[in-house]
């Protein structure tokens, strides 16, 4: 009997120790968030972002050429090292054909790394010869551990669109939406509907949707990360295919996956984490067609 009690108490201490380690100040994974998210819900984040969007509107960028380039990366998971993150910034800043780069979420790994991420971003020298912009969307790692206030401090809003206009006046629309909870929520879904209905009436050359969470689970690369619910998967796919979205770019999986859904191409981009053995970013050429290639950064090591 005494031995059984000792075993039970020992097991309890082990479990409590594990939970403390998993949730403590140096933890990487927000285990509390597994049952009750510690950042505001998506509809609350939407409302907070709406205030910013209503005040500042959305951006139109000028492309330097007709066939311009967009650099896309995801899942940099910045911690105390930021080698590939800074390499990515330096690379797109020195490409004269690139007016914009996109980060698809999980820019940092866990709590307390936003400062490192931003310091590294600022430390990369600006290219005086050109103007460019980095667009970002929140991933789950960016907002768990109550990190939403910090995210919003740096990135201002969780949903928006931006337009890139070429010298001849052709316009491409990029719709960026928040899926860091594994759901887009009801208000953001309505905004996506309204935005794409508005886009139908414009003369956009291409429409691209950018977010963190991907649609499908087609192989074992995904590990223990969730997708959207089934209901939302089909609702979003239908919305996007009905309104002529050409591509959906996402991350989260850390492993490339390209899926054709009707006339739309869904691309999951590889991760750019410093520790990963097969890191890539995606280089997209936006012309009459959208061409893309994946560029390895495996040689870029700390």
């Amino acid at each position: 009997m005494k031995k059984n009690i000792q075993i039970c108490l020992g097991s309890l201490l082990l479990v409590l120790g594990s939970i403390f380690t998993a949730c403590g100040p140096e933890a990487r994974l927000d285990m509390v968030g597994m049952f009750a998210g510690t950042s505001p819900k998506i509809d609350e984040r939407f409302e907070e972002s709406k205030v910013y969007n209503d005040q500042h509107g959305f951006t139109t960028l000028q492309a330097p050429v007709e066939d311009y380039r967009v650099y896309v990366c995801t899942d940099t998971h910045v911690t105390k090292t930021q080698t590939r993150w800074t390499y990515f910034i330096d690379t797109y800043r020195h490409d004269p054909l690139c007016p914009v780069a996109v980060h698809l979420g999980d820019i940092i790994d866990a709590q307390n790394y936003f400062d490192e991420m931003y310091s590294a971003y600022q430390a990369v020298p600006l290219n005086p010869a050109k103007k460019d912009t980095l667009m970002a969307v929140a991933g789950n790692h960016d907002i768990y551990f109550k990190q939403w206030p910090e995210y919003i401090k740096y990135f201002k809003t969780c949903y928006y669109y931006f337009i890139v206009e070429t010298p001849s006046g052709k316009k491409d629309l990029f719709v960026v939406y928040d899926s860091a909870d594994g759901t887009v929520g009801s208000k953001q879904l309505q905004w996506l509907r309204e935005t794409l209905e508005w886009a139908d009436k414009q003369d956009f050359r291409h429409i691209v949707a950018c977010t963190h969470t991907h649609f499908f689970k087609r192989d074992g690369s995904q590990g223990h990360t969730s997708n959207y619910t089934q209901e939302e998967t089909y609702a979003l796919l239908n919305l996007f295919t009905q309104h002529g979205v050409d591509m959906v770019w996402s991350g989260h999986d850390h492993s490339r996956e390209i899926t054709q859904v009707k006339d739309m191409t869904c691309i999951v981009v590889d991760s750019m984490k410093d520790e990963d053995k097969k890191p890539f970013y995606m280089l997209v050429t936006m012309g009459e067609k959208i061409d893309y290639e994946f560029v390895s950064v495996a040689d870029i090591q700390k």
């Binding site: 927000d30 968030g33 597994m34 049952f35 909870d181 594994g182 990360t225 969730s226 959207y228 939302e232």
Partner: peptide, 15 residues
Amino acid sequence: MKLAGMFHLNAHYYG
């Protein structure tokens, strides 16, 4: 009850 994003470690009510 269905939560979204349990394994995003950022779970919220879904349905």
